[in-house]
Each structure stands twice: as structure tokens, then as C-alpha cells.
Design a protein around this nucleic acid. Sequence first.
DNA 1: CTGTTAGCGCATTCAG
DNA 2: CTGAATGCGCTAACAG
Lengths: 349, 349
Amino acid sequence: MCAILTIPISLSKAGMSHVHVTLKDIAIRAGVSVNTVSRALRNRLDINDETKKRIIEIAERLGYTPNVLAKSLRSKKSKTIGVVIADISSPFYSNMVKGVEDGAQEKGYSIILCNTDEQYKKEEAAVRVLLEKRVDGLLITPVQEENKDILDLKEKRIPFVLVGRHFDVIQTNCIVVEDVIGGFLATEHLIKKGHRRILHINGPLHMSCAWERLAGYKRALLEHGLEYDQRLVRGNTTEMEEAYKLTKKILSEGLSFTAIFAFSDVLALGAMHALHEAKLRIPDDVAVVGYDDIEFTRVSCPPLTTVRIPRYLLGKKAINLLVEKIIKKGSRKLQQIIIKPELVIRESS
Amino acid sequence: MCAILTIPISLSKAGMSHVHVTLKDIAIRAGVSVNTVSRALRNRLDINDETKKRIIEIAERLGYTPNVLAKSLRSKKSKTIGVVIADISSPFYSNMVKGVEDGAQEKGYSIILCNTDEQYKKEEAAVRVLLEKRVDGLLITPVQEENKDILDLKEKRIPFVLVGRHFDVIQTNCIVVEDVIGGFLATEHLIKKGHRRILHINGPLHMSCAWERLAGYKRALLEHGLEYDQRLVRGNTTEMEEAYKLTKKILSEGLSFTAIFAFSDVLALGAMHALHEAKLRIPDDVAVVGYDDIEFTRVSCPPLTTVRIPRYLLGKKAINLLVEKIIKKGSRKLQQIIIKPELVIRESS
DNA sequence: CTGTTAGCGCATTCAG
DNA sequence: CTGAATGCGCTAACAG
């Protein structure tokens, strides 16, 4: 009686009134139990070859798609990684994230992408959502205006890796660029070219990478016996348009300088545009050095001298480190990977 | 007896030997049932204000993070969307995806990002993984070398929207650019400037957008009584470097042309670099028109005439359409949004 | 080799 | 207003 009652109900399920086929649907068709199906589809050894084949065939015919959500709920592994960055539309992050995604794909992970637009509130919200979705780990370029969320992550022992930025006050896994050296290389290069008054177009100083580049700039001046002139350090943006406007403004102010070291290539390109408009020749009137070595530096006029950051590699190493941390989650060992930036001399200096 | 037996076990759980706090942990601390906690935290009405407060407070103290995986398993909604694109590192997609992510965030969705690198196999794998993760819908820029996965999606009634490319043989929700018109506008503009021999640097023709731009090119020639010369259509790439090499090669071949219409700005910029190297003046010796209007066209030398695609908006409209389709999933109505491209005349033509 | 049972964390019945 | 029972889809432990 009971069987007679349940069969039609189950069959209606097997008839797939619902969207996705489940193990149960297959089990009913194959006349076996759910977990036989489970084991068959996972290609376990302890199962009859005949039934396995039959089950697999039915699964295919029905278009079975395993429900990873359910799997994750049991296994406590989502095979998903959260990626929290400032802005995917910038060439820097888009290249980096490509490396992240490629690496993730190789290792069987998916990435959930979140933009913060350099707003701590958004970062906090992103981290929360990602934890709710039970990502196995996070890759974060922190906004650094606050750090509560990062501390939280540490306390909860969630695997995460900071990318491209780091905190002095918090020990974390991270992969960072030696930006002091980068800033130093860029500035020293200009000094060696004979420049004495070098304008530094700066990024937002809450980012460690921005103030480190500035620190490198200062150190180069110091080491070469040049005085640091505060008026020569300007800007607080990552937008090309802003750099363009700022440079125009600075030119109109009549500030004297013979070279520019910009926080990023994007800013450098914006500045160069302003220089062009002012009919200043590059590098004859003003030399320019950027940072990042984005693709377009090679085709700018003139091609831009810059400090190369291997962004794709940065992303790839970051994901590799993160996955390593996820796998041996027990270990409390923190790891930092340091990437050396490299001066690329082209025709703008 | 039974109670005495179960309490210590539960307390060990409430002691949080496990990573994440659950409703059960909170329930035990609060001395209520799991579902009272559930209702309290979801701010339901049918619950005592006192206990609600107490529960919320305990939840916060314990650092409760709801398990959305479990929620999704029940609700059959993951609040996650799969985004399948060619390559996030390209300016086109990175801008588009920014729009997608912003829109998704607004509507409470997360996005899982997958790159195909224009390989159908990867697209297929990406779609499979996304379905396994039970995304609520997909945004896809299909590789178009095959279409089985797309047909599959249709058959399974999974909500999806194609972006920027579309199939002639499959009716789908999609958001596309009128690329024939875009190609026409670019070419006609050059013709009106007096050009007769216009080189078209083409993208991979499996993409509908590439052959449509070419179709626009042809139509413009036709309408203006110019003959179509097959030798003037070259290229099959989306890489700047390739366009650069190709242009160099074409120049060395001695093919005569006075203008270039490139499939994308990236290709145009590569071509311009080759022209510069060959000491050809732009636009005097060779005029150049690109496509997309990426950020850097404004600062190239000279600033690039191009056909603007509102990429951010494209992404945003795509996600909005998709979310709409997800919400009223019953409806079989297919919707296509058409975006008009716009000629932006700068100094390269 | 296969079936039964239980539980991942949550929300939705349905009783009290 | 609150609790107990049930099930989302899957896997693991344990019997047989």
C-alpha cells in the first residue's frame, strides 16, 4: 500500500515537473537507490559495471547536472573564491583578474567578482556577501581606509590573500610589489637624465602602493642630494581624466618642472595628453614616467617609460597562494610573496 | 534523560568547534528552537520583541553569517549570475563587466566570471560549471563556433541573455549593437573624407559583430559606388600586437590604401603604431577609424575617430534584462534590446 | 555490490 | 507567539 502510494508521487518527480534532474529522478528510472546513483556517477569502484553504465546512460539522457550547492553544503567546500578589487574596468585589475581567473579555472575554482570603487563600505558588504556564499577563500585589494573586515577575516580564520596592497599593522598572507623600489627606480631614472624638478602625480594615499611609490620618489631625491619640494607632489586619483585636468591646472599655475612621475600609466597618459595640448614636447620639454606597464604604453606618443608590474602573474601567483592556503587550512603560517618591479625605458624620458 | 544526553553534544557544537555559527548554535544559547531564531533574524512579525532582540544580540555576538548555500538549496535561488565572456583583460569586456557588476550589486546578485578566450570548449565548460553552481541566470558573449550549449540552455529554460553577439539561427534574449550600422558609419565617414581604398582590419569572423561590421563596410562601399576589393579586408584577431604586425606586413606588401577601418580600437591603436613607425602621418597619409571608443582613444596620437559602443551601459542593460527574465521566469517571451552605435569624429580621420 | 539512515543549514509547513 | 517535523540534493557511515 505504502509503495503504491509513493510510487506515483515519485514518478511525477521523475517525470521532471521540476527544473533540474536529481539523483532521485535517476534512481527511480534505474530502479536503484539514490546513493547507488551517487556512487555510480562519481565513478566509485564498489559498484557493478552493468548498473553503473545503465545509470550513467540514464543520467545523460535526462541531462543530469549535479547540484553543487547541495554538495557544498555537505562538504563545506564551495570551490568558489571571492575576488574583491577596486574596479574591474581599470586595465590594472582587468589584467590581474585575468590571471586570477585562469589560475582558478586550472585548479577547479570559480571566482565571484566584487568591485569596491575604493569605498570601504562596499568592501565590507562584498566580504559579507562572499562569506555568506561560503567562498573557500578571498583575494582582496583592500581599500585601506579601514581594516575591520580584514581583522574579522583573520579572526575567523578564513583563508585570504591581500593583493598589491598591505597593512603595516596587520600580518596577513599577501602578495605585494616592492613599490618603494618602483618609485625609486622611476625617480632615479629621471634624475639621471638630469631632471631636478620632478612632478609626482600621486594616487590616493590610503593605498599602501601609493604612499610607497611616493616614499621611493622621496628616497631617490634624498640619495641624489635633491631637496624634496612638497609643491611638486600633487593628485589623489586613479582617473585618467582627473590627471589630465590636474596637469592642465598645474601648467596654468606656472609651476616649474621638467619631468613627471605618475602613480600609474593611466595617469601618465592623461598628463601626456595635457602636455600635448600645451604644445610641450615629450621628452624634450617634459619627460614622463608611468607605472604598471599597461598595454597601451607601447603605442602612446611617444611610447611611455614605465615601471612594469607583471599584473597577470601577480593575479596568478595570488590565486595559487590562496588555493595553497585553502588546502592546508590548518596551518597558521603566513606567507608573503614579493614581486620586484622593473623599469622599462621607452621614449618618453 | 534524553535531554541530558543531547544537551552536552549540542553545547559542544554551540561551543563552536566548527568554523561557522549556525542557527542551532544561536538557538541553544538563546534557549529557543532553531526556527524561532530563523524567524527572529529574518525580522518576521510573529515573534516576541524581547526574544527577537535577545536572539539578534546573540547572533551578533557570535558573529553569525547566514549560510546562503543552504538557503539557496531550499529556495532554488542562488542570487548569483554567471558571466561568460571572451577575455576580461580586454578594455571592451572589462568596461562591460563593470556595468554588469554594478547592476548586479544593486539588485542583490553576485557574479561568477568565466573567460572563454574565444574557445568554444571553454565556453561549454563554463556554462556547465555555472549550471552546477545553480546560477539564476547567465550573461553570455558566445564564441559562436558552435551553439550546442546555447540550445541546451534554451531547452532547459534557464534564463540567459546574449550580449554583443547573436545567432541568426537561434532566437534568444539578447542585447546587441547594430554593428552593420556601425561599420557603415565608419566607412561612409571615410568615404566622405575622400577615401577610395579603405583597408578593413577585421576581427575573427565567427563573431557576429565582426562580420556585421564587415557587412556595414561593404554596404557603405556599395552605396557610394565603390568597388569591394577583397584584398583590402584583412586580419582575424583581437590582439593589438597582431594588428601592429599585420599592418607592418601590409605596408611592406605595398598594398595601396589611404585609410583604415579597424574592427576595434585596440586593433586601430596597433595599426597606428605601425603607421607611426613607417613615418606615415595620420590622417594625412592614412586616416584611421576604430570601434568601441575605449578610454585611450581620447589620448592617442592623434585622438582616434571611432564608433562608440556604450559598454558600461550595455553591461548594465544586459543584467537588468536578465534579472527581469529571472524574476518572471514563467514567461516565454523573448526580448532583444538593440543599441545604436555612434560615430565619434576625432583627429585621426 | 547495494540499500538504509542520517545530516549539512535553513525555511516552511503545521500544531500547539 | 513558539516548537517539532519535513525536505531541498547530496554524500558518508553503516548494514546487509
